[in-house]
Design a protein around this nucleic acid. Sequence first.
DNA 1: ATAAAGCGGATAAACAATATCCACTTTATA
DNA 2: TATAAAGTGGATATTGTTTATCCGCTTTAT
Lengths: 160, 160
Amino acid sequence: MHMKTGVEQSVYALVLLNMLPDKAVLSGEAISQQLGASATYFQKLLRKLVTADIITSVPGIKGGFKLKKRPEDIRVYDVYLAVEGQQSLYSSNGILVDMLDLEKEDSCCLLTNLMEEAESSWKAVLKRETIASLSEEMRGERFKDKIAALEEWVSNKMVI
Amino acid sequence: MHMKTGVEQSVYALVLLNMLPDKAVLSGEAISQQLGASATYFQKLLRKLVTADIITSVPGIKGGFKLKKRPEDIRVYDVYLAVEGQQSLYSSNGILVDMLDLEKEDSCCLLTNLMEEAESSWKAVLKRETIASLSEEMRGERFKDKIAALEEWVSNKMVI
DNA sequence: ATAAAGCGGATAAACAATATCCACTTTATA
DNA sequence: TATAAAGTGGATATTGTTTATCCGCTTTAT
């Protein structure tokens, strides 16, 4: 039970896209390079973000990706959902139903309610931060002098 | 990102062991049969529960497993921990460190704090229920007439 | 027209979870 | 005291999921 690395990668990809000026895009290849991710595979992840209406893709030469929503409207939770899908962390295997010889329709499990609550509570925390708040955090004191290089890289790689 | 089925299996195994009278044990084979689990593999899971001091194993003929702690002292969380290990749901891949060219020691990630909070909050819910509370729930109205067969099975399979 | 970008499907590689096998130790009992 | 039935630990196979690659396709600025 471990979160896919694709979630972290996607979040940082969105932080990168959030550094773009209006109308500009970054190519999938450029993004994966900056993230140190496999380019061909990361394209698949970018597609999931497109499907989830988090980013927009522009085909053709001078194409690429940019944010579709405002960064303050993209929660970490939305990214998680887009990348990992909507399946729950827990799903019963119907062991109790078998042990007690219940009807299939009962779909009863002593753990399901508890696990659903736990998951909700977990998700609630992921809804607290957004791409905007993470971007702001990155621009804080701590990385003051390291940000410039990244901003320059974005300027060089972006396409308008 | 999905919880192993071993967690559900282990919880129900413990509920079964909780039906045993004092000093009695159930063999690993009997338990796996009742759970519909692979016997040889489930032995490995039982071992994890032994290592975690949740159950005791008795070797030799007339051997088997029984609870080591009182059922009200075994939280669902403890079972999860025993089966899945103590690794976190999320661990950073150091993408930000690479992007900003930080020192390795910084081990900095915008997501780590958030994810740790989320996980704590998730775990807190798993600490709420115990084998005792789940056993009680199983004995409630809903399964009134289905419990007898299971109790009889336990009586037949147990060894004192 | 062409080159550079995204799209979608098929497939491979890597890894983790599940399952099996076997030689070993332990212990009740005939 | 030999034996049968139980757990133990290691090696290994099977299965499933995640990550990665490849290729032919569409889109669009020049």
